[in-house]
Design a protein around this nucleic acid. Structure first.
Lengths: 254, 254
DNA sequence: ATAATAACTTGATAAATGTCAATTTTATAA
DNA sequence: TTATAAAATTGACATTTATCAAGTTATTAT
């Protein structure tokens, strides 16, 4: 996938100003002087290696995080020792918004590959939003989007067949790669089949079978984590969700 | 249930100051002078009758809403003409937070009974939060809580048996009644079995059978919408640990 | 490079839940 | 009130997906 990227992912010390993720991130639609202020409160942490944790369940909530490069999964442990994967997080996406209410992280965030993040201390961010209405608005928008996205997933989990779930998952990933300037038809999945199954509320075996079937039907090519989408239209039909709403929610500016 | 209520639900023209829902609502932890300011931007709408709409899919987003009395359901139409119920909303709970991002309501809000709401124009609210850090913080907290709650539901839909889903649903409703000063062990459900099934990602028939089984096992008394919870502990066990407790429950009775 | 481990795939079987159909009960409207 | 429609329940059956088991392929560590 690396050779297919259209934009460069920000390396560890680039400022918001120079960051290619600006349009997907908090800085969207804030400008020069204000951007510098935001930039000043952001801490750029040293990259996480695969399987390292960004935060654990119960960790005190101090900051929200934005993925700069790489990817993470978040998951909540259940009473009976299982895990429920609640999301995958690609560059430009926020983590930790679910902890503001309680002051503690309700889930674990674990790097799926070498991953670097920006840390945004929440108190400073709140102070900053007091004098920057556009920043506040952007924060609210991003939180709202997360609520909206979660509801889409609820719909998926509640109503859809295994086939539709995997289709929707692949389309979602594809779309998000596209928004980040990568190919939407060929990419590497950083998460395991197990993670995908868990996220979609299915057994690993079911997911594996679906991958095989999609490949047999010529809809995709899947060689382990390397995915090529051959037939976007069929995939959308199978997913049975409105790609419209998804696009609008992601690209439209309020 | 009406004769069991501990607090009075606010009637249509009571101010935030006098409102019994203050501690569950946006005003939480803001005081006198500031409360008046919030109070001033809030519009108290005339009550909705059963089956009337608060907003429709695609309605422009101008305001968020707080339930004063009664209840609503929100649902999203799917591409194939189905509906997915995304939530039930009791007094003190917010609606419309999922529309901030796109500027359009992605779901329908429909009254389940005679229902009155406070309308809070979002622009005014954003302005107000600029000078009221505590109000901003409370808004962020409530949005965060919604994200958190949605993730809980995702977990339910992804991982749990029908038994666990209905248990968790009943416990959730019970808890929310309790927080509002009503009995947590005896209440009326304002939503139909169909709505519950849809919300939980189950067939109506399955929900109906579960109600019957819970009743046979003495866990609850369910006469249509009138619910009495007899055995809270078992219900919690069922909600938490699906596989194990399920077998116990089966051998216990059958 | 090789062994050990983890991830993935595939098949057979079982279990849970959905679907269809019929009936009863409750709610709504004439 | 009675007629009509809607909601809820129950049973029989079908289907999807989970589970169990085995084997294969990749990844990691020695």
């Amino acid at each position: 996938m690396r050779d297919r990227k259209v934009i460069d992912l920000p390396s560890s010390n680039v400022s918001c100003n120079e960051c290619s993720l600006q349009q997907l991130c908090l800085p969207q639609s804030i400008n020069g002087n204000e951007l510098d202020k935001l930039d000043n409160i952001i801490e750029r942490k040293k990259p996480l290696k695969r399987n390292e944790y960004l935060f654990q369940v119960g960790s005190p909530f101090d900051s929200i995080y934005v993925v700069r490069s790489g990817s993470l999964k978040t998951y909540s442990p259940t009473i009976d020792g299982q895990e429920q994967v609640t999301g995958f997080h690609l560059p430009g996406e926020l983590l930790g918004l679910d902890a503001i209410g309680s002051g503690q992280h309700p889930c674990v965030a674990k790097a799926l590959e070498t991953t670097s993040v920006c840390e945004i201390p929440f108190e400073s961010l709140e102070e900053l939003t007091q004098s920057m209405p556009t920043l506040q608005h952007q924060l609210l928008r991003l939180m709202s989007k997360e609520i909206f996205d979660d509801q889409e997933l609820m719909l998926l989990l509640g109503k859809k067949t295994a086939e539709a779930r995997l289709s929707a998952f692949l389309l979602s990933i594809s779309l998000r790669f596209k928004q980040r300037g990568f190919s939407s038809t060929e990419f590497y999945l950083s998460m395991s089949r197990n993670d995908i199954a868990n996220y979609l509320g299915l057994a690993v075996e079911t997911v594996s079978r679906m991958f095989t079937r999609f490949q047999e039907d010529g809809i995709i090519n899947a060689e382990r984590k390397h995915i090529v989408i051959n037939d976007w239209d069929t995939l959308q039909q199978l997913a049975g969700i409105s790609q419209l709403s998804e696009k609008e929610a992601c690209t439209k500016k309020a």
